[in-house]
Simulated scan of single mutants.
Amino acid sequence: MTKIWITDASAYAKTSLTVLETPRTLAQIRADVYYLMIVAADLRDEADEVKDYEYDDTEPLETSTCCLLIKYFGYQLSSDPSDAIEVDMLDLWQGPESRKPDMSRRDKGWLKWLYLTRFRPGLLPEIERLFRGQGDSIHEGYPWQQGYKAYVICEIRNVLYKVPYGYFNDTKSAHDWLSTVSSVEPSDNCHGLGRIRYMDAEGFPSWGTFMTKEVGIAEVPEGQSSPVEFDRVEPFDWPCQVTEFWGIGTDPIQVAAA
């Protein structure tokens, strides 16, 4: 059995829960992961061509990738990352050709082989749902659904917007990431999306995309100690750039096991 740890160097946190075991070789594993990323990239290209920007361009995340590998390729969760081989999704996608699976994407014959050998009934619709920000159900029952989601609260013209973003193992990791957030602003010409600017794990400025249908809206309370009740809304255009925040925090992720 090959034990691997799915990571992403550009991610805001590194979860030790994305460790998998499989009888597949390391070359096959890298091709599996690369296939999932290339399908998402193709979906993005297709959407951009028709000026359809209502998608989550952070997917597939490490956790989503693990879910898909388990469900469609027979991988198994493993509890111990100590001797796992790290598979960095960013390095696999942007790194040197020597670490990409087998051949360059420019080789159309290899690309066709990749699609034919990795085709699984139901996989493409599943990735499409992730791409559209509708993939919460595929995570149900997996351990990373017991973590935390960070949020920033922005005040714009006496209205509070609660913007959730990301997965974290613990509240400390979430607050460490929150300390790097510098702005929340519109996504260029993309209805229903906004952007968060933060520092990535390597210390470089990065952008994260959030879907405004996940944002909560509330009125500013008369006293800051008053409780605030946020209501979810339909997708909307994020109003403006915000660089100062009314508040930050974390919410526990609690999804019942499937």
Rank of each mutant, 00 (worst) to 15 (best):
residue 1 M to C: 13
residue 4 I to P: 03
residue 8 D to F: 00
residue 10 S to Q: 04
residue 13 A to M: 01
residue 14 K to G: 07
residue 15 T to A: 06
residue 15 T to I: 02
residue 18 T to C: 15
residue 19 V to I: 13
residue 22 T to Y: 10
residue 22 T to A: 01
residue 30 R to D: 15
residue 31 A to T: 15
residue 34 Y to M: 03
residue 37 M to E: 09
residue 43 L to W: 02
residue 44 R to M: 06
residue 45 D to R: 01
residue 49 E to I: 15
residue 49 E to A: 11
residue 50 V to G: 12
residue 50 V to Q: 09
residue 54 E to Q: 03
residue 54 E to D: 03
residue 55 Y to I: 11
residue 57 D to I: 09
residue 63 T to F: 14
residue 67 C to Q: 11
residue 68 L to Y: 06
residue 69 L to G: 12
residue 70 I to A: 09
residue 70 I to C: 14
residue 72 Y to R: 00
residue 76 Q to W: 01
residue 76 Q to S: 15
residue 78 S to C: 14
residue 78 S to Q: 12
residue 81 P to L: 08
residue 83 D to P: 09
residue 85 I to A: 09
residue 89 M to G: 06
residue 91 D to T: 13
residue 92 L to W: 11
residue 93 W to M: 05
residue 94 Q to D: 02
residue 95 G to L: 09
residue 102 D to W: 02
residue 105 R to Q: 14
residue 106 R to E: 07
residue 118 R to C: 09
residue 122 G to S: 04
residue 125 P to F: 06
residue 127 I to H: 01
residue 128 E to W: 12
residue 130 L to D: 04
residue 130 L to C: 09
residue 131 F to H: 00
residue 131 F to D: 08
residue 132 R to F: 04
residue 145 Q to F: 05
residue 146 Q to I: 06
residue 151 Y to N: 05
residue 152 V to S: 07
residue 152 V to N: 03
residue 159 V to E: 03
residue 160 L to D: 10
residue 162 K to H: 10
residue 164 P to I: 01
residue 169 N to G: 09
residue 172 K to P: 03
residue 173 S to Y: 12
residue 177 W to S: 08
residue 178 L to R: 01
residue 181 V to G: 06
residue 182 S to Q: 04
residue 183 S to T: 00
residue 183 S to Y: 06
residue 189 N to E: 09
residue 192 G to P: 04
residue 195 R to M: 07
residue 197 R to T: 02
residue 198 Y to T: 03
residue 198 Y to V: 01
residue 199 M to W: 08
residue 200 D to Q: 02
residue 203 G to K: 05
residue 203 G to W: 03
residue 204 F to D: 11
residue 206 S to I: 02
residue 207 W to G: 01
residue 208 G to H: 06
residue 213 K to F: 11
residue 215 V to A: 10
residue 216 G to V: 00
residue 218 A to D: 13
residue 222 E to N: 04
residue 225 S to A: 12
residue 225 S to M: 10
residue 229 E to M: 14
residue 231 D to P: 00
residue 232 R to N: 08
residue 238 W to E: 10
residue 239 P to Q: 02
residue 241 Q to R: 14
residue 243 T to C: 13
residue 243 T to Y: 00
residue 243 T to L: 11
residue 244 E to T: 08
residue 246 W to G: 05
residue 249 G to R: 08
residue 249 G to T: 15
residue 252 P to M: 07
residue 256 A to R: 04
